[in-house]
Design a protein around this nucleic acid. Structure first.
Length: 295
DNA sequence: CGCGCAACCTGTCTGC
DNA sequence: TGCAGACAGGTTGCGC
Protein backbone atom coordinates (compact mmCIF):
# COMPACT_ATOMS: atom_id res chain seq x y z
CA UNK A 1 0.00 0.00 0.00
CA UNK A 2 2.83 2.52 -0.02
CA UNK A 3 1.40 5.51 -1.86
CA UNK A 4 2.94 8.88 -2.67
CA UNK A 5 3.34 10.06 0.97
CA UNK A 6 4.92 6.79 2.07
CA UNK A 7 7.37 6.70 -0.84
CA UNK A 8 8.17 10.39 -0.31
CA UNK A 9 8.90 9.63 3.34
CA UNK A 10 11.30 6.83 2.43
CA UNK A 11 12.97 9.02 -0.17
CA UNK A 12 13.57 11.84 2.32
CA UNK A 13 14.98 9.45 4.89
CA UNK A 14 17.31 7.59 2.54
CA UNK A 15 18.47 10.32 0.16
CA UNK A 16 21.21 11.81 2.33
CA UNK A 17 22.34 8.34 3.35
CA UNK A 18 22.83 6.91 -0.14
CA UNK A 19 23.61 9.88 -2.37
CA UNK A 20 27.29 9.83 -3.28
CA UNK A 21 27.72 6.25 -2.08
CA UNK A 22 29.09 3.49 -4.26
CA UNK A 23 27.35 0.14 -4.48
CA UNK A 24 29.87 -2.54 -3.50
CA UNK A 25 27.58 -5.49 -3.97
CA UNK A 26 23.99 -6.49 -4.65
CA UNK A 27 22.36 -9.78 -3.67
CA UNK A 28 19.03 -10.90 -5.06
CA UNK A 29 17.41 -13.54 -2.85
CA UNK A 30 14.13 -13.78 -4.75
CA UNK A 31 14.41 -13.86 -8.56
CA UNK A 32 10.93 -12.32 -8.89
CA UNK A 33 12.28 -9.06 -7.49
CA UNK A 34 14.26 -8.20 -10.62
CA UNK A 35 12.21 -9.94 -13.33
CA UNK A 36 12.71 -10.11 -16.23
CA UNK A 37 16.43 -9.75 -15.46
CA UNK A 38 18.19 -12.79 -14.11
CA UNK A 39 19.57 -12.21 -10.61
CA UNK A 40 23.19 -12.60 -11.77
CA UNK A 41 22.85 -10.10 -14.62
CA UNK A 42 21.04 -7.70 -12.30
CA UNK A 43 23.65 -7.97 -9.55
CA UNK A 44 26.56 -7.53 -11.95
CA UNK A 45 25.16 -4.52 -13.73
CA UNK A 46 24.86 -2.60 -10.45
CA UNK A 47 28.26 -3.43 -9.03
CA UNK A 48 30.51 -0.38 -8.51
CA UNK A 49 27.83 2.07 -9.60
CA UNK A 50 27.59 5.34 -7.70
CA UNK A 51 24.27 6.76 -6.49
CA UNK A 52 23.93 10.25 -7.93
CA UNK A 53 20.49 11.04 -6.55
CA UNK A 54 17.40 9.52 -5.01
CA UNK A 55 14.08 10.89 -6.26
CA UNK A 56 10.42 9.93 -6.53
CA UNK A 57 7.87 9.82 -9.34
CA UNK A 58 4.37 8.71 -8.38
CA UNK A 59 4.88 5.64 -6.23
CA UNK A 60 8.27 4.87 -7.78
CA UNK A 61 11.53 5.49 -5.97
CA UNK A 62 14.29 6.30 -8.46
CA UNK A 63 18.03 6.00 -7.88
CA UNK A 64 20.09 7.65 -10.57
CA UNK A 65 23.32 5.70 -11.01
CA UNK A 66 26.59 6.53 -12.69
CA UNK A 67 29.46 4.21 -13.50
CA UNK A 68 33.14 5.00 -13.91
CA UNK A 69 32.46 5.48 -17.58
CA UNK A 70 30.98 8.98 -17.56
CA UNK A 71 28.68 8.12 -20.42
CA UNK A 72 26.86 5.42 -18.53
CA UNK A 73 23.74 6.69 -16.85
CA UNK A 74 21.15 4.31 -15.57
CA UNK A 75 18.17 4.41 -13.29
CA UNK A 76 17.12 1.94 -10.65
CA UNK A 77 13.33 1.98 -10.33
CA UNK A 78 11.90 0.55 -7.14
CA UNK A 79 8.22 -0.09 -6.59
CA UNK A 80 7.10 -1.32 -3.17
CA UNK A 81 3.60 -2.34 -4.37
CA UNK A 82 1.61 -3.75 -1.45
CA UNK A 83 3.99 -4.79 1.27
CA UNK A 84 7.48 -3.67 0.33
CA UNK A 85 9.85 -1.92 2.71
CA UNK A 86 13.38 -0.57 2.40
CA UNK A 87 15.27 -1.06 5.65
CA UNK A 88 18.58 0.66 6.22
CA UNK A 89 21.48 -0.47 8.38
CA UNK A 90 24.65 1.53 8.93
CA UNK A 91 26.52 -1.71 9.46
CA UNK A 92 26.05 -2.06 13.20
CA UNK A 93 22.29 -2.66 13.46
CA UNK A 94 20.76 -6.11 13.35
CA UNK A 95 19.58 -7.10 9.88
CA UNK A 96 16.10 -8.25 9.00
CA UNK A 97 15.75 -12.02 8.70
CA UNK A 98 12.36 -12.67 7.12
CA UNK A 99 11.02 -11.82 3.67
CA UNK A 100 14.29 -10.29 2.48
CA UNK A 101 14.13 -10.22 -1.34
CA UNK A 102 17.29 -8.28 -2.05
CA UNK A 103 20.24 -6.55 -0.35
CA UNK A 104 22.33 -3.56 -1.45
CA UNK A 105 25.73 -3.11 0.18
CA UNK A 106 27.51 0.25 0.05
CA UNK A 107 31.13 1.35 0.29
CA UNK A 108 30.64 2.89 3.74
CA UNK A 109 29.55 -0.41 5.28
CA UNK A 110 25.86 0.46 5.20
CA UNK A 111 23.24 -1.71 3.53
CA UNK A 112 19.62 -1.56 2.45
CA UNK A 113 17.34 -4.58 2.48
CA UNK A 114 14.28 -4.86 0.25
CA UNK A 115 11.82 -6.67 2.51
CA UNK A 116 8.50 -7.75 1.02
CA UNK A 117 6.22 -10.48 2.44
CA UNK A 118 3.81 -10.53 -0.48
CA UNK A 119 6.45 -10.49 -3.21
CA UNK A 120 4.67 -7.92 -5.40
CA UNK A 121 7.50 -5.40 -5.18
CA UNK A 122 9.77 -4.93 -8.19
CA UNK A 123 13.11 -3.35 -9.01
CA UNK A 124 14.12 -2.65 -12.56
CA UNK A 125 17.05 -1.05 -14.32
CA UNK A 126 16.47 1.45 -17.08
CA UNK A 127 19.33 2.71 -19.24
CA UNK A 128 19.30 6.40 -20.11
CA UNK A 129 16.93 9.30 -19.67
CA UNK A 130 15.01 8.68 -22.87
CA UNK A 131 14.11 5.17 -21.81
CA UNK A 132 13.13 6.47 -18.38
CA UNK A 133 10.76 9.10 -19.70
CA UNK A 134 9.40 6.56 -22.16
CA UNK A 135 8.67 4.16 -19.33
CA UNK A 136 6.82 6.77 -17.32
CA UNK A 137 5.10 8.46 -20.21
CA UNK A 138 2.69 5.67 -20.96
CA UNK A 139 1.84 4.75 -17.40
CA UNK A 140 2.09 7.86 -15.18
CA UNK A 141 0.05 11.05 -15.37
CA UNK A 142 0.70 14.38 -13.72
CA UNK A 143 2.64 14.63 -10.47
CA UNK A 144 0.27 16.13 -7.84
CA UNK A 145 2.79 18.66 -6.51
CA UNK A 146 3.72 19.97 -9.94
CA UNK A 147 2.54 23.50 -10.74
CA UNK A 148 0.72 22.18 -13.77
CA UNK A 149 -1.61 20.05 -11.64
CA UNK A 150 -4.69 22.27 -11.55
CA UNK A 151 -8.50 21.93 -11.41
CA UNK A 152 -8.47 22.71 -15.14
CA UNK A 153 -6.22 19.73 -15.80
CA UNK A 154 -8.60 17.52 -13.81
CA UNK A 155 -11.43 18.86 -15.93
CA UNK A 156 -9.62 17.99 -19.17
CA UNK A 157 -8.99 14.44 -17.99
CA UNK A 158 -12.45 13.96 -16.52
CA UNK A 159 -14.71 15.43 -19.18
CA UNK A 160 -17.15 13.05 -20.85
CA UNK A 161 -15.97 10.17 -18.66
CA UNK A 162 -18.61 8.14 -16.91
CA UNK A 163 -16.16 6.29 -14.72
CA UNK A 164 -16.70 6.72 -10.95
CA UNK A 165 -14.34 9.36 -9.57
CA UNK A 166 -12.53 6.98 -7.22
CA UNK A 167 -11.24 4.53 -9.86
CA UNK A 168 -10.41 7.62 -11.93
CA UNK A 169 -8.13 8.82 -9.11
CA UNK A 170 -6.59 5.37 -8.69
CA UNK A 171 -5.64 5.23 -12.37
CA UNK A 172 -1.97 6.25 -12.31
CA UNK A 173 -2.18 7.40 -15.92
CA UNK A 174 -4.42 10.26 -14.80
CA UNK A 175 -2.66 11.29 -11.62
CA UNK A 176 0.48 9.69 -10.21
CA UNK A 177 0.75 8.60 -6.60
CA UNK A 178 -2.79 8.39 -5.23
CA UNK A 179 -3.81 4.97 -3.93
CA UNK A 180 -6.75 3.57 -2.02
CA UNK A 181 -6.12 5.38 1.26
CA UNK A 182 -5.54 8.86 -0.06
CA UNK A 183 -8.33 8.56 -2.64
CA UNK A 184 -10.81 7.99 0.22
CA UNK A 185 -9.31 10.81 2.25
CA UNK A 186 -9.25 13.25 -0.69
CA UNK A 187 -12.86 12.53 -1.66
CA UNK A 188 -14.07 13.02 1.89
CA UNK A 189 -12.24 16.35 2.14
CA UNK A 190 -13.84 17.40 -1.15
CA UNK A 191 -17.33 16.25 -0.09
CA UNK A 192 -17.65 14.07 -3.19
CA UNK A 193 -19.16 10.58 -3.35
CA UNK A 194 -16.60 8.03 -4.62
CA UNK A 195 -19.11 6.62 -7.12
CA UNK A 196 -19.95 9.97 -8.71
CA UNK A 197 -19.26 9.72 -12.44
CA UNK A 198 -16.17 11.88 -12.86
CA UNK A 199 -17.49 13.63 -15.95
CA UNK A 200 -20.46 15.03 -14.00
CA UNK A 201 -18.37 16.96 -11.50
CA UNK A 202 -18.87 20.70 -11.83
CA UNK A 203 -16.23 23.36 -11.64
CA UNK A 204 -16.59 24.00 -7.91
CA UNK A 205 -16.37 20.29 -7.18
CA UNK A 206 -13.21 19.90 -9.25
CA UNK A 207 -11.66 22.79 -7.33
CA UNK A 208 -12.57 21.02 -4.07
CA UNK A 209 -11.25 17.72 -5.37
CA UNK A 210 -7.96 19.30 -6.41
CA UNK A 211 -7.55 20.86 -2.95
CA UNK A 212 -8.66 17.64 -1.24
CA UNK A 213 -6.02 15.60 -3.06
CA UNK A 214 -3.24 18.02 -2.13
CA UNK A 215 -4.39 18.35 1.48
CA UNK A 216 -4.66 14.60 1.98
CA UNK A 217 -1.23 13.97 0.46
CA UNK A 218 0.38 16.78 2.47
CA UNK A 219 -1.14 15.43 5.69
CA UNK A 220 0.28 12.01 4.84
CA UNK A 221 3.77 13.36 4.22
CA UNK A 222 3.69 15.44 7.42
CA UNK A 223 2.75 12.34 9.40
CA UNK A 224 5.57 10.28 7.90
CA UNK A 225 3.10 8.12 5.98
CA UNK A 226 0.50 5.65 7.15
CA UNK A 227 1.78 2.47 8.78
CA UNK A 228 -0.93 0.08 7.68
CA UNK A 229 -0.15 -3.15 5.84
CA UNK A 230 3.23 -3.21 7.59
CA UNK A 231 4.64 0.00 6.11
CA UNK A 232 7.79 0.98 7.96
CA UNK A 233 10.36 3.74 7.85
CA UNK A 234 13.99 3.20 6.82
CA UNK A 235 14.86 2.35 10.45
CA UNK A 236 11.83 0.17 11.16
CA UNK A 237 9.86 3.04 12.72
CA UNK A 238 6.25 3.80 11.88
CA UNK A 239 4.33 6.72 10.41
CA UNK A 240 1.32 8.18 12.19
CA UNK A 241 -1.10 8.99 9.36
CA UNK A 242 -3.22 5.93 10.26
CA UNK A 243 -4.19 7.80 13.46
CA UNK A 244 -5.35 10.81 11.46
CA UNK A 245 -7.56 9.10 8.89
CA UNK A 246 -10.84 10.98 8.49
CA UNK A 247 -12.75 8.08 6.91
CA UNK A 248 -10.40 5.36 5.69
CA UNK A 249 -10.46 2.22 7.86
CA UNK A 250 -13.07 3.87 10.11
CA UNK A 251 -16.20 1.85 9.33
CA UNK A 252 -18.88 2.34 12.01
CA UNK A 253 -17.12 5.29 13.62
CA UNK A 254 -18.50 8.81 13.50
CA UNK A 255 -17.75 11.26 10.74
CA UNK A 256 -15.36 14.03 11.87
CA UNK A 257 -17.66 16.75 10.54
CA UNK A 258 -21.19 15.42 11.22
CA UNK A 259 -22.79 12.79 13.43
CA UNK A 260 -23.28 10.17 10.76
CA UNK A 261 -21.59 6.80 10.84
CA UNK A 262 -18.89 6.10 8.31
CA UNK A 263 -19.77 3.26 5.97
CA UNK A 264 -17.68 0.86 3.92
CA UNK A 265 -18.68 -0.07 0.39
CA UNK A 266 -17.03 -1.95 -2.47
CA UNK A 267 -16.14 0.14 -5.49
CA UNK A 268 -14.19 -1.18 -8.45
CA UNK A 269 -13.20 -4.10 -6.23
CA UNK A 270 -11.72 -1.86 -3.52
CA UNK A 271 -12.80 -1.29 0.03
CA UNK A 272 -14.09 2.28 0.07
CA UNK A 273 -14.94 4.39 3.12
CA UNK A 274 -17.19 7.41 3.11
CA UNK A 275 -19.73 9.51 4.99
CA UNK A 276 -23.08 9.27 3.18
CA UNK A 277 -24.18 12.55 4.68
CA UNK A 278 -21.12 14.61 3.72
CA UNK A 279 -20.58 12.83 0.39
CA UNK A 280 -23.89 12.76 -1.47
CA UNK A 281 -24.30 11.05 -4.81
CA UNK A 282 -25.68 13.67 -7.24
CA UNK A 283 -28.10 12.53 -9.89
CA UNK A 284 -26.90 14.17 -13.05
CA UNK A 285 -26.85 13.23 -16.67
CA UNK A 286 -23.51 13.03 -18.33
CA UNK A 287 -23.07 14.81 -21.60
CA UNK A 288 -21.37 12.23 -23.76
CA UNK A 289 -20.67 14.66 -26.54
CA UNK A 290 -17.64 13.90 -28.64
CA UNK A 291 -14.40 15.37 -27.48
CA UNK A 292 -13.38 17.86 -30.13
CA UNK A 293 -9.73 18.11 -30.93
CA UNK A 294 -8.62 21.67 -30.52
CA UNK A 295 -5.33 23.54 -30.51
C1' DC B 1 -10.58 3.59 -26.64
C1' DG B 2 -12.69 3.25 -22.06
C1' DC B 3 -13.48 0.50 -18.50
C1' DG B 4 -14.08 -3.55 -15.32
C1' DC B 5 -11.96 -7.40 -13.63
C1' DA B 6 -8.94 -11.44 -12.80
C1' DA B 7 -4.30 -12.53 -11.71
C1' DC B 8 -0.22 -11.95 -9.21
C1' DC B 9 1.16 -13.15 -3.76
C1' DT B 10 0.97 -14.30 1.32
C1' DG B 11 -0.22 -13.00 6.09
C1' DT B 12 -4.16 -12.24 8.85
C1' DC B 13 -8.75 -12.32 10.15
C1' DT B 14 -13.55 -14.48 10.33
C1' DG B 15 -16.80 -18.03 10.74
C1' DC B 16 -18.07 -22.71 11.23
C1' DT C 1 -8.53 -25.74 18.02
C1' DG C 2 -8.35 -26.32 13.06
C1' DC C 3 -9.20 -25.09 8.71
C1' DA C 4 -11.34 -23.13 4.61
C1' DG C 5 -12.36 -18.93 2.67
C1' DA C 6 -12.43 -13.97 2.51
C1' DC C 7 -9.76 -9.95 2.55
C1' DA C 8 -6.02 -6.64 2.03
C1' DG C 9 -5.06 -3.38 -2.60
C1' DG C 10 -0.80 -1.63 -6.78
C1' DT C 11 -0.17 -2.87 -11.34
C1' DT C 12 -0.67 -5.45 -15.56
C1' DG C 13 -3.02 -7.59 -19.13
C1' DC C 14 -7.14 -9.33 -21.12
C1' DG C 15 -11.78 -9.07 -22.84
C1' DC C 16 -16.10 -6.75 -23.72
Amino acid sequence: MPELPEVETIKRQLAARVEGRKIDQVKVHDPKLCEPFSPRVFEESLRDMRVVSLTRRGKYLIAELAGDDLNSQSFLLMHLRMSGNLLYSNGTQKLEQKYVRGTFMFDDGASIQFVDPRRFGRILIIEGEDALSGYFEKRLGIEPFEQSFTPELLFEKARCRRRPVKPFLLDQANLAGVGNIYADEALFRAGIHPAQPVGTLNRAELVSLHAGILDALKAGISAGGASVERFRHFDGGTGSMQDEFLVHNREGQTCPSCKAKIVKIQLAGRGTYLCRSCQRLRRRTLKTGRKDKHH
